[in-house]
């Protein structure tokens, strides 16, 4: 089953202005984990906005779950480089937020608040945040905030998770920890993931398929399937095998720079 599909999509933010992305066609299978990499300013984030329906393509069509995207999508989880947790809510309440908005949880909220809270606590415990439920975001470290942010993106069980450089601001060790955590969550209860990043190691480690975008306007220049069994271990990132894959992606980016 296909979850996301781009058909020759182009987008210019201003009418007649320069294209942010041009002629992109790709398709993401259900429960596939894809990564989009490219130099900064290549329209990676634009791609996310198109999928979530926050912007409309100038040309071409975007389909999510077999239906053409028209207006903001209902059931997408999103996480960004900044955790965007609400500072006036505790960690638990932050994770509860989607349940207060997305149906059918929204109308069940009053009667099932306890059950929903338990569910949030479970998810927080699974990402190693047990005991931090009642802390406020500023009391958490950057990595913990990002874990909470991913919990918030997943609590309403979206079919599609969109990640826009979610680990971009973290140190190398925390980053690797979170890769493992994300992979575990994804394997336990699969969902489709679109990960936008400029970290080639991250893309290679996590994704089934990596797409390389060129710069201004963003065009697809390469598609690479990563054939590595799951669950992938961090040790794998130190093998020649892994290095070869990363290197190959790097070559594509290098070529973009020269041209």
């Amino acid at each position: 089953m296909e979850q996301v599909r781009f058909e020759q999509v182009s987008l210019a933010y201003d009418e007649g202005g320069p294209l942010a992305i041009q002629d992109i066609s790709l398709s993401v299978a259900e429960n596939e984990f894809i990564a989009v990499v490219g130099p900064s300013g290549c329209g990676k984030s634009t791609l996310m906005k198109l999928v979530s329906g926050l912007t409309e393509p100038t040309e071409g069509y975007v389909y999510v779950g077999g239906r053409q995207v028209a207006g903001p999508q209902k059931c997408i989880g999103m996480a960004f480089q900044a955790s965007n947790l609400l500072p006036w809510r505790t960690t638990l309440d932050n994770v509860m937020l989607p349940l207060e908005i997305v149906q059918p949880y929204r109308s069940q909220m009053r009667r099932q608040r306890k059950a929903f809270e338990a569910r949030c606590r479970d998810l927080l415990a699974r990402v190693g945040l047990a005991g931090n439920e009642d802390k406020f975001p500023w009391e958490l470290s950057g990595g913990m905030q990002q874990r909470a942010s991913i919990c918030r993106a997943l609590i309403h069980k979206p079919k599609l998770l969109m990640l826009d450089e979610p680990f971009g601001a973290l140190d190398a060790f925390t980053k690797e920890e979170l890769w493992i955590m994300l992979q575990e969550l994804w394997q336990e209860e699969p969902f489709t993931v679109i990960l936008v990043t400029h970290d080639l190691r991250e893309a290679t480690f996590l994704a089934d398929t990596v797409y390389v975008l060129s710069k201004g306007p963003g065009q697809l220049v390469a598609r690479k399937a990563i054939e590595q069994a799951r669950p992938r271990k961090l040790e794998w990132t130190y093998t020649d095998d892994f290095a070869r894959d990363v290197h190959e992606l790097r070559e594509h980016i290098g070529r973009i720079r020269e041209s």
């Binding site: 903001p72 209902k74 989880g77 965007n84 908005i101 997305v102 918030r152 969109m162």
Partner: peptide, 19 residues
């Protein structure tokens, strides 16, 4: 970004204002 997070959940303008 905060607005995007909420809009991607299908939140209405009123939801965003309230939450």
């Amino acid at each position: 970004e905060l607005e995007d997070v909420l809009r991607s959940m299908g939140a209405s303008k009123l939801d965003i204002l309230r939450k």
